[in-house]
């Protein structure tokens, strides 16, 4: 079987974060590289937060996705450096997050967070820490709904 990088990346586009099932490991920017050398395959990933419990699941999911397509010879390597940043999140990923009800990271102005429900910028931080390591908790002062913000990191 001839391995093709584009094909592998496409496969991984269907592997999603178990905590935020709308966003894929590619959109999140945790797949750092796919290295193909003749018939050996290496998928290089990096953790989001060092204690993120989803990482183990994600590795298993990548494993399953490849095996399902009959790819059995590969390795998944974890690298720590350079450290993951939300700047690696794709525009597509940010759009999907918003649709799902999570405000995407806003690196240009982290004080200016838009409500994913009504798009108002009249919002307020409730807690720096949210339901998972990558999120903090906000509330919208216009539609009064609370929402998660995927914080810049």
């Amino acid at each position: 079987m001839v391995l093709d990088k584009e094909y592998i990346l496409e496969l991984l586009q269907n592997v999603t974060d178990p905590e935020i099932p709308v966003i894929s490991v590619i959109d999140l920017g945790i797949v750092r590289d796919v290295i193909i050398d003749e018939d050996s395959l290496e998928v290089v990933i990096t953790p989001t937060y060092s204690g993120c419990p989803a990482m183990l699941e994600i590795e298993k999911e990548i494993n399953n996705a490849l095996k399902k397509k009959g790819i059995n010879e590969f390795k998944i390597t974890t690298v720590l450096s350079p450290a993951w940043t939300t700047e690696w999140m794709s525009e597509e990923g940010k759009r999907k997050l918003k649709e799902y009800g999570i405000a995407p990271p806003n690196p240009t102005n982290p004080e200016d967070i838009e409500c994913p429900q009504c798009s108002s910028k009249n919002t307020q931080l409730i807690s720096e820490f949210g339901s998972t390591a990558c999120k903090s908790l906000f509330k919208c002062n216009d539609c009064l709904e609370p929402f998660d913000y995927f914080k810049c990191h």
């Binding site: 060092s50 993120c52 949210g130 339901s131 390591a133 908790l137």
Partner: peptide, 20 residues
């Protein structure tokens, strides 16, 4: 609740760092 979550989040970060 929010501070309960904050402390356990920090705890998780620390245990992740401990693993590295």
């Amino acid at each position: 609740l929010e501070q309960d979550i904050a402390m356990t989040n920090i705890s998780l970060d620390l245990i992740g760092q401990a693993r590295m």
